[in-house]
Write a protein that binds this DNA or RNA. Structure first.
Lengths: 218, 218
DNA sequence: GTTTTTGAACTGACTGGTCAGTGCAAAAGC
DNA sequence: GCTTTTGCACTGACCAGTCAGTTCAAAAAC
């Protein structure tokens, strides 16, 4: 049971109703199982059982196994995107630089992955697959999240803080990948380390302080 | 059909025998199918059909579906590891710096992903899963590949070229993630761009030339 | 003549999805 | 206040279909 609550209690159509609570339980059950085994290898019976619910309930709440998964994806990436946006805006309010904003977003990414590792695993495992039912959904939510990073990069270029030679989409992808893989490896192989620890290592890389004296070499 | 040949014709136990050729065909068929659909969703019948081979042949050559997949994994990561090592050694022979070695390995990674995109997809999709039959195999081959990067980082720290404050395993993971995600996004969303183009964007990031004047800001 | 492949038939376990029926809390009727 | 009705949420046995893996006699390749 590696996943956190993922409540957020005030979702789109909140309503503390029984229905909503059941859906939440199903999300939580599905996310861990699918992260471990993959979508196809996870049966609806398993999901229902772990959620403490009858199989029929799954189909009462979701049109199909795929739809359940798709809505889970939307839900999760939505949380991430909101978190990234908040981080970026936080530094903007404080008059911070764009590099500070990137740094804050790295931290937000790490916090998210730390909180919802199972969701992250499942997201990574599905993102680059092709020919799947939920491809288009995934594409849309991915773009929403990456766009937050891209916007910060663009702003930084616009105000001269970042080189205008950087490739916005590619650099954004690379930054996301950096955080994603470092965080997953952290969770998988060095879970005892602190978030601050990981953050500072990535921060150093972001700011090009890899060379021995803090300046880039060639 | 997004995958390249993956022949390498001179693999571990080469033997141009008929048997080896059949296994090769099965690898190629399996890699694309599993990359697209995932392991569980891919049937043995499909693999056999795409390989142009009878189902019985699959079981004549491999003990089971899982074993076929596991050997495929070993085979593919072996190619990557060899390629990374070669890149690192190439710059060492030319008396290049360790940053040059890292740069060469980034390029080698891109070349690999460009050549075997399907394998890369499948690898990423499986790497952080838990509770799977081939977990341990995957762990071993992953470590072999990452170790090549870690060694270059360590060498760079030892000779003072890189800061001794960098976190070797985390930085290695982050670099791998950077290349992995940037390359997969390149393939998926901007396949028309050239490898050199992608490489230079990542190179810039590696060398910390993101800030407007080529120096890190704070 | 030995190795490898073929291809079709078969099995037994498992899976997504269905559906008739249950439980129950609030509304309606008295 | 008490009884009856309504309909939402849930249940779990069931079904039709699918799949990994087996078997094997015969053909093909070497």
């Amino acid at each position: 049971m590696t996943i956190g609550a993922m409540e957020s209690s005030r979702t789109v159509d909140s309503g503390g109703g029984r229905r909503q609570a059941t859906r939440q339980k199903l999300y939580e059950a599905a996310v861990t199982l699918i992260a471990e085994q993959g979508f196809s290898a996870t049966t609806v019976d398993e999901i229902a059982e772990r959620a403490g619910v009858a199989k029929g309930t799954v189909y009462y709440n979701f049109a199909s196994k795929s739809v359940l998964f798709e809505e889970l994806l939307r839900h999760g990436v939505g949380l991430l995107t909101a978190s990234l946006r908040e981080a970026a805006e936080g530094t903007a309010r404080d008059g911070g630089s764009k590099v500070d904003a990137l740094d804050a977003m790295i931290r937000a990414g790490l916090v998210f992955i730390d909180r919802y590792p199972a969701f992250t695993q499942l997201y990574v495992a599905e993102l680059w697959r092709t020919n799947r039912a939920w491809q288009s959904t995934l594409m849309v939510v991915r773009q929403e999240a990456v766009a937050v990073v891209e916007n910060v990069l663009r702003d930084g270029i616009a105000n001269g803080e970042l080189s205008d030679e950087i490739d916005t989409p590619l650099t954004a992808s690379a930054l996301v990948g950096m955080v994603l893989v470092a965080a997953l490896d952290w969770q998988a192989f060095q879970p005892e380390r602190s978030l601050d620890d990981v953050h500072s290592a990535l921060s150093r890389l972001l700011q090009g302080r890899v060379g021995g004296d803090g300046l880039g070499h060639k």
